[in-house]
Computed example of a mutant assay.
Amino acid sequence: MTKTIISPSKYIQGPGELSKLSEYSGRLGKHAFIIADEFVTGLVGKTIEDSYAGKETSYTMEKFDGECSKQEIERLRTACKAAEADVVVGIGGGKTLDTAKAIGYFNEIPVIVAPTIASTDAPTSALSVIYKENGEFDEYLMLPFNPTFVITDTKIITSAPARLIVSGMGDALATYFEARATKRANKTAMAGGHVTEAAVALAKLCYDTLIAEGLKAKLAAKNHLVTESVEKIIEANTYLSGIGFESGGLAAAYAIHNGLTVLEETHHMYHGEKVAFGTLVQLILEDAPEEEIEVVVSFCLSIGLPVTLADLGVKEINEEKLRKAAELSCAEGGTIYNMPFEITPELVYAAIVTADSVGRYYKEKLG
């Protein structure tokens, strides 16, 4: 039985790390092709200019148009070649980073990603999510390698609204429970092999860090401060969750998230916020101990993550719509089949409704 764990070659985190970009890119090549959207360019442009000033390494800055589409990847890949760049850098959110990863893959050059938010675990992964030009999902581009360097500037990340780092905690919350389920079922993870002990250990550390540091980090992030708790949560959201989901496995929580997308009322919610509720549904689905469920719900309530359908914007329970969500959660080939027991849409529907009831119970009990 093959077991696999994968990760970036180097993960770098701290306040002001982006100011050292020329040093980091210089370890991989002489000329960097840097992409960022208009907003991020305004945010970090001067930092990048200062980083490369007077250095032997050079760079070309190109604006990312906001969509990780095949057309945009091709446009930027061609521009990267024309610039004779030997390293590509993506600075920004998930779509920018995924585009940079795709450029690196097609041009066969090293990739540096620098997330400006900590709302997902995507930066470390060997995956690009490709969309159509109109924003609809197109396909997954599975990459042979993870990014070479991940540079996480915590000062930049804490300048963003606190809701984004909280959403990242919701995304990270699922990591341990999904890795645990995948290992129990003896299924393979996205890394291409069965789950290693190391992957589960990192996933568990991710969960423990959230519980211990999450509330303190949220309160600091609301004031745009970098504290030790913020540093730990950014690492959990980005690195620990990234390695945990890719090498530990995905299961019901992410599938429930996908199912919830049929409910229009949830479309204003962030990815991690929906994953948090999906985590509660998974715990109900697997009949987790009451003590474990209470810890998870209490954590969510303390930092403002949703624990009921109403929290997601679903004010009225519509059985027909919820059954459609359950059916989509059970789509053929979905990650929900990494659960260590038989899955049916009926079971998922029951778990969604029960999770909503559990969330309402604890909101009343815990005030």
Rank of each mutant, 00 (worst) to 15 (best):
A198Y: 11
A126N: 04
A185I: 09
E235C: 02
E74P: 02
G16P: 10
S25L: 05
L164Q: 08
P345S: 11
T354C: 05
I117E: 04
G192T: 09
D208P: 14
V314I: 12
E286P: 01
C68G: 09
S241Q: 08
A181R: 02
T99M: 05
A114K: 05
L285C: 00
K30E: 08
V129G: 02
Y361H: 12
K46W: 01
M1T: 09
G168V: 08
G170E: 04
S9M: 11
R360M: 14
K216D: 15
D50H: 13
V297F: 01
A179Q: 10
V348G: 01
A212H: 10
D65V: 13
P306D: 14
E291R: 13
E294V: 15
I303C: 09
T4E: 12
T335K: 02
E235V: 04
T266V: 13
I284A: 04
P15Y: 11
T344I: 09
D287W: 00
V230Y: 02
L205P: 00
E292M: 09
F277I: 01
D287K: 15
L225N: 12
V89Y: 04
E197G: 02
C206E: 01
A199C: 05
E286T: 07
D208T: 07
A114C: 14
T4C: 14
H267F: 08
E62A: 11
A191Q: 03
T78D: 10
K187H: 07
T354E: 06
H267I: 06
V44K: 10
S329D: 07
T96E: 07
S69W: 04
K183C: 04
F245E: 03
N107L: 03
V195M: 12
A36N: 08
V348W: 01
V262G: 07
R323G: 00
E290G: 00
C68N: 12
H224G: 03
T182G: 06
G242E: 05
V200G: 01
L164C: 05
D37A: 05
Y52V: 12
A122S: 12
K55E: 13
P345G: 07
D98S: 08
K70T: 14
A350N: 10
S125Y: 00
G42F: 04
A201L: 10
A53F: 14
K216S: 13
A350R: 08
E290F: 01
Y140F: 15
Q13D: 08
C330H: 03
K63E: 11
Y207M: 13
M190I: 09
Y207Q: 13
E319R: 06
I12R: 10
A126S: 13
E316N: 14
K274A: 06
K81F: 10
A236C: 12
E346A: 11
V358W: 00
G170I: 07
N318E: 12
I12W: 09
S25V: 04
